[in-house]
Design a protein around this nucleic acid. Structure first.
Lengths: 235, 235
DNA sequence: TTTTGGCTCGTGGTCAGACCACAGGGTATC
DNA sequence: GATACCCTGTGGTCTGACCACGAGCCAAAA
């Protein structure tokens, strides 16, 4: 009864979600061609495309033109991009406060470092590699910020939790512009970056010593401290 | 030059995001009509619609037919729905593990209760209301699960952090099906629900006593305990 | 004058058809 | 046997058309 009122693209979306849930569609599979989906579901091709567009932006499918096995719409699982886009847009639309994003990052990263500190084994090779790079070279502000993002992301990835990794990346992305523009308010960048690098190493040390609580507080102070220094003068 | 390679709908999406960022578009504003956007940006109306569909699913706009001030596409900020849809789909596509979702919930809710416990003032009226309801009535499993979701969400809302609230709601939504079907594996539901209710009250007590660490551990055990009891036999 | 009924118009929702660009595979040619 | 060509299937896009809906307007009726 409500099927007639349901919008056509939602029919397509629900169908695909259903096929995903019951295993009809698996990661790596190809979706039927748009034209076929349209006739199968009794909707127009444009409605199918609207649904596919949503799936694409959310990182569920990848589309390619041409022919062959690599063409068409293929189920993938790259949640990071979609999460980033969503959070970025919500920040742009002012439905998310920067402060709330930062506090959420603190919550997630505290859990990350706590988990890492309590783990029996951990692979921090990438983290150490980034620490070295950030110390070695004379970096521009933009390069430093980019590496910093990579470092925090590497910590999340070491945790081997796809959800947390994706969320951290998304949250970071959402406030990327704010972080970059915020560096302008820091009077002595050389000193600030030295302090940030030192805090990074302290966090990693705490993790490797298994000091979970210390790591939690260090990372929280690290993040909050940076944003406090950046938001001194509120416009 | 790359404008020809950039896909048309992305042009629309980028334009709207830009207008959002520089304040040309504000929450509550109406977007130009689809046909006007199409001619303005030099793309087809279908491409405009694909972009608007993405914005709608992400919770950034609300569309309505008809005429008058309430019609058209209006900027809103309801990130919860979009986040839920995204996480739900990623879980369906098996790019998110249930276990990772649960652990992320633990991380966020730990932070929530810690923040509440450390706060000078807090409004837990809704939380207490839900606690009463869950104790008073003889609830079906579905009702109990729904109320439990509301309770956890109420805690997040008491924290006054839009990002965390949206994420918690989304994470909970994503595994809703799993939670409901998991109740079947619990042999003695009456005993289990009594225990869950008791744990809820313990958490709230710890918050109100200002015992931040205790609250953190209680909520973590509460969530992890439930999922451990539900996933005894892995298929 | 006031009310009421229908009319018009602008909006999103949908569909059908057409064309293009692209990539792979098959086929004819050298 | 190797190469160049065309054929086919795919997504990407545009155009035009129609529908449903809702608000505002205007004329006819009370």
């Amino acid at each position: 009864m409500t099927e007639t009122t349901a919008r056509a693209w939602r029919v397509v979306l629900d169908r695909i979600e259903g096929d995903l849930l019951d295993g009809t569609l698996q990661p790596g599979d190809r979706l039927p061609p748009e034209r076929e989906l349209a006739t199968t579901l009794g909707v127009g091709r444009s409605s199918v495309r609207e649904a596919l567009r949503v799936l694409e932006v959310m990182g569920l499918i990848r589309t390619a033109t041409g022919s062959g096995p690599k063409a068409g719409a293929i189920i993938i699982g790259t949640p990071t991009g979609g999460l980033s886009a969503l959070l970025r847009l919500q920040v742009a639309a002012q439905s998310f406060e920067i402060e709330d994003v930062v506090r959420t990052r603190v919550a997630l990263e505290s859990a990350v470092v706590e988990t890492l500190a309590q783990a029996d084994t951990r692979d921090l090779a990438e983290v150490h590699r980034l620490l070295e790079i950030m110390d070695a070279a004379a970096l521009s502000v933009e390069e430093f910020v980019a590496l910093d993002a990579q470092l925090h992301l590497a910590l999340a990835e070491a945790c081997d939790n796809g959800v947390m990794t994706a969320m951290m990346a998304g949250l970071r992305d959402a406030i990327e512009g704010y972080v970059v523009s915020g560096t302008e308010r820091i009077p002595d960048w050389a000193e600030a970056s030295a302090r940030l690098r030192h805090e990074h190493r302290e966090v990693v040390s705490a993790i490797e010593l298994g000091h979970a609580d210390a790591a939690r507080h260090l990372i929280a102070d690290h993040i909050l401290g940076y944003f406090a220094s950046v938001s001194t003068a509120r416009s």
